[in-house]
Structure formats: C-alpha cells, structure tokens
C-alpha cells in the first residue's frame, strides 16, 4: 500500500515521465482515501499552470 510520501513522489513524477498503469492504480487507490494527497494533487497541477504562465506575466 502506497503511503503519502511515495504517493506525493509519484504525483510529482507524473509531470516528468510516463506513469505505468500499475502506478496509476496505486495512486488512485491512495487518493480515494486521503484528503491531504487530493489537495496536494490539485496544488501540483496549479503550480505547473502558474510556472508555465510566468513568462507571460513578466
């Protein structure tokens, strides 16, 4: 069973490499049960969006 620390790593890596089906399933299972990690998931998406918008905000 995936813990928050490893789930967070995988969530982050999903922005940098293709995630395997198995990893995706493990993350989904964890996220169903963990509000903190669901917040983290949304926040990572937001951080990506903000960082990629930054060149247009300079």
């Amino acid at each position: 069973m995936l813990d928050c620390k490893h789930n967070a790593e995988l969530l982050s890596q999903s922005y940098d490499r293709p995630i395997t089906l198995r990893e995706r399933m493990a993350m989904r299972m964890h996220l169903m049960m963990c509000k903190g990690c669901r917040n983290f998931e949304k926040q990572l998406a937001f951080i990506r969006k903000v960082a990629r918008e930054l060149p247009r905000k300079l």
């Binding site: 813990d3 928050c4 620390k5 490893h6 967070a8 963990c34 509000k35 903190g36 990690c37 917040n39 983290f40 949304k42 926040q43 937001f46």
Partner: peptide, 15 residues
C-alpha cells in the same frame, strides 16, 4: 514534511 510512517506531518489544506 513527512512522518516516519510516510504520512504527511501536516496534510495539505485546501487552497
């Protein structure tokens, strides 16, 4: 950020 058992020391709150 994480406890020894791999959980968040304080879980991310909603933004």
């Amino acid at each position: 950020l994480f406890k020894e058992n791999g959980r968040w020391a304080s879980p991310p709150q909603t933004w």
